[in-house]
Design a protein around this nucleic acid. Structure first.
Length: 575
DNA sequence: GCCGTTTTCGGCCCGACTGTTTTCAGTCG
């Protein structure tokens, strides 16, 4: 997707943050935030637009359009530079700590000259915050907890950020002459939820041109190591990329080796050793004679170990070797199996694109059906009303089947309140084709209360899918605490699907929870929760996560034909 | 800063919760 849009989004968001931190006009800050989001979700490349074209984007007026063109003309925006010079970058970093906002960050900077997360942690431990107005014991505790949460994610970055960079690099190296094969490997190929560094593999006779191509990329900020077999760089975003070049006839062995996981590779190497073989990144060899037995493709390497090819998303030593030996590997769900998205938003609530645009973009993805599920009234900021949702339903019915014969489902994303109740009474819910229900508040109930809350939502005859079930935000918020075994059992019993939310900072349920839930016979919905046409493409991350949870097509309700899906959506209600 | 007009200024997503205060500021969804 258009990278320039993301650059501008980040820049405008930064400016909005800086305005908020410097106690500037809050409404102005919000205007920049809104424009940032609009440009981030804008479906075509904004670097090709002039001021007039930019102003056609909702939320972008004269001032912001001029800043955007200034950015593409000069690589910088003077107004942003000016504000940056007054506020160290570390102060902005402070507001990424959950519960710490712009006001507190500015107080910390002005009164204690704190301008980094480390300095803040030190200051708390030295009890320097005690005298600050607005800061108390609990605040210190919350900040430290927030910092701990962020450190748990460590230096790892979200899947989509790594994927964008990796795909750029692979595309670039593939164009380099002499390239026989090129792919990313490592945890990215296994679709782990966060990525430490990017591994890229090239098959070629000569390595030098590829090493040079990598170190010469515009995104390369620093060369960490530069050799004949391996080169490591750090990107401008601080992400490490390791490139390895192997001879073409070692491609399969190299890809297998560098895809990992470590635990999986230990198992495959042990199997090799037991057979008098040796497995390395260069191939499978006879241990005694050193004769090369297999190496050209992954399939060939696995086959000589009497294993079927194992999909990378399963390679975690979580039973895939045993399943492979028995010929019981699951036929994993793929992106192509998905017939429709069942959780999406429009600009009627907090989405960016109007209904028609979302529908058109969904149809372009080849979906057979598509659900629109805007927020329900209890999420107050969304200002939903009965009249608005019913008017939307009329328009959905009009558009049904009009784009590539794609069928439309009219739904909503309900809010599960602390008692497990949802926004609308049963007779009103009856009018929806599908209801997703999610937790959006009261994250800190006791385990018992939270379990009861989710169980009651599942028992609601109109609730079809529990959206982002744990509500975790990777690196930001821990998931809610519930007796998940009980919840999974109730989901299976009531015919309530659990969502695999594909937003890269959610991936919720996560792979391990999916594995647990599947044992109870739960069904799943892989949804994007898209708020723009662009993010419909995040589906792949949901599919990757589902694969890591060993899901097959049959486990996932939105791979089913519409008729079967509709039967599922009726739950136990008899009609 | 943007938008949409009753075209040139007034409104802009609203309410809950938390922790700090002693009546409310800050953060979040």
């Amino acid at each position: 997707m258009a990278r320039p849009n993301e650059e501008v989004e980040a820049l405008l968001q930064e400016y909005a943050d800086l305005i908020a931190i410097t106690r500037g006009d809050a409404i102005k800050a919000r205007a920049y935030e809104k424009a940032a989001r609009a440009i981030g979700g804008y479906p075509s490349d904004v670097s090709h637009l002039d001021v007039k074209g930019l102003r056609d984007i909702p939320g972008v007026g004269k001032s912001i359009a001029e800043k955007v063109t200034e950015y593409f003309r000069t690589g910088r925006v003077s107004a942003v530079e000016e504000t940056r010079s007054r506020i160290p970058a570390g102060v902005r970093e402070l507001i990424t700590i959950p519960t710490l906002g712009p006001k507190k960050a500015m107080t910390l900077y002005q009164d204690l000259h704190i301008s980094s997360i480390d300095e803040l942690a030190d200051a708390i431990h030295a009890e320097k915050l005690r005298d600050l107005r607005g800061f108390g014991e609990k605040t210190e505790e919350n900040i430290l907890h927030g910092i701990a949460l962020m450190q748990q994610a460590g230096d790892r970055i979200l899947l989509n950020v790594a994927m964008d960079t990796a795909e750029d690099i692979v595309a670039e190296l593939s164009r380099t002459s002499g390239c026989e094969r090129c792919a990313y490997a490592g945890s990215l190929r296994r679709m782990k939820e966060t990525i430490g560094d990017i591994d890229v593999l090239v098959a070629a006779d000569r390595s030098a041109p590829f090493m040079a191509a990598l170190t010469g990329l515009p995104l390369t900020a620093e060369v960490i190591a530069h050799g004949g077999k391996k080169t490591s760089i750090r990107t401008t975003k601080g992400l490490q990329v390791d490139l390895r070049v192997v001879p073409p006839d070692s491609w399969g062995a190299g890809l297998q080796y560098f895809s990992g996981s470590k635990a999986h590779n230990i198992r495959t190497r042990t199997i090799a050793v037991r057979r008098g073989l040796k497995l390395s990144e260069y191939g499978l060899f006879d241990a005694e004679s050193g004769q090369q037995i297999a190496s050209r493709s992954e399939e060939e390497v696995y086959a000589r170990l009497d294993l079927p090819w194992i999909p990378p998303t399963l390679r975690e030593d979580r039973g895939e070797i045993e399943a492979g030996i028995k010929g019981e590997l699951p036929a994993l769900v793929t992106e192509r199996d998905i017939r429709g998205d069942l959780h999406t938003h429009t600009d009627l609530t907090d989405g960016l694109a109007p209904l028609e645009e979302m529908v058109r973009a969904a149809a372009a993805r080849g979906y057979a059906y598509y659900a629109i599920t805007d927020h329900a009234p209890n999420l107050y900021m969304q200002q939903m009303t009965d009249a608005k949702i019913l008017a939307q339903r009329e328009r959905v019915r009009e558009l049904d089947g009009k784009h590539r014969r794609m069928r439309l489902l009219h739904g909503t994303e309900l809010n599960i309140d602390p008692d497990g109740e949802v926004d609308w009474p049963q007779d009103f819910l009856e009018g929806f084709d599908i209801c997703v229900a999610s937790v959006h508040s009261h994250f800190n109930l006791s385990r018992k209360e939270m379990t009861r809350r989710l169980v009651r939502a599942c028992e609601n005859p109109h609730v079809n899918v529990i959206g982002h079930p744990t509500t975790r935000l990777i690196g930001k918020r821990q998931g809610i605490d519930a007796d998940w075994d009980e919840v999974f059992a109730v989901c299976a019993r009531t015919g309530t699907a659990l969502e695999v939310n594909a937003q890269p900072d959610r991936l919720d349920l996560c792979d391990e929870d999916i594995l647990s839930a599947k044992r109870y016979g739960v069904k799943f919905a892989i949804d994007t929760d898209a708020h723009s046409t662009v993010t419909l493409a995040h589906l792949r991350y949901g599919v990757g996560t589902a694969q890591r949870g060993w899901l097959t097509k049959d486990d996932v309700i939105n791979t089913w034909p519409l008729q079967r899906l509709r039967r599922f959506l009726r739950k136990e209600r008899t009609t």
